[in-house]
Amino acid sequence: MIEVKDLHKAFNGEEVLKGLNFVFERGKTNLIIGQSGSGKSVFLKNMLGIFTPEKGTIEYDGKPYSEFTDEERRELRKEIGMVFQGGALFDSMTVKENVMFPLKMFTKMKKTEMEERVNTVLERVNLIGADDKMPSEISGGMQKRVSIARAIVNRPKYLFCDEPNSGLDPTTATVIDNLIQKITHEFDITTIIITHDMNSVLEIGEKIAFLKDGLLAWTGTKDEIFKTEDKTVTDFVYSSNLFKKVRDAQLKGY
């Protein structure tokens, strides 16, 4: 569980996060949504320790990050898996080497044990047979799955995903969403996903934080977001023509 309390962050005197409070629950897919410039990425980077907040705390399982020693911070980072927007796969390594990388860096596992773990994870993300390929030789969807495999291979407690299905076709995006949700439940991970994609919200939004101008404008679940009458949220949700038409059809009783 990650608890954020009164989080403030500013750049050059301009406040980007203006006092956020939210609890990201363990074993659930927690989504952060909002328009571009609403502060989602800054929020994520604060939680990852890349940025230091001006005010407020981020507690990992009850302990504030600011009170972690350097050693504890390094240990915490080993428990974090991150799926980057572009995959961020190491392009000089094969798929297998990419997935094995965290094990090589942080464990004392034997090579056979590492290979066994990598094969299990690759099987879990349906990538058996692609292990000797280079990242440039596989599709965008496969790259995202490799990125997920690399993020979960060391059995993290926290999984952060920055727009995991951006640039993917709707079918592949759904596959990726479902995969992240299944992994979250299976390994009981605290998963935090940044997304713009309302399809993702509909598929896996077990807990949603809607950000607007650095403030938490709304919280709820995927069922609640489509029923809310909060104008800030409805303006965002129904900016998609598809969702707008579905809502209009529902209102007309079709």
Binding site: L48, I50, R77, K78, M82, F84, M105, F106
Partner: peptide, 18 residues
């Protein structure tokens, strides 16, 4: 080689891993 890693977030990936 290092610049490509920077623009494709590979360096961020290393840092996030600790």
């Amino acid at each position: 080689s290092i610049g490509s890693m920077q623009v494709t977030e590979q360096i961020d990936a290393l840092e996030v891993m600790g």
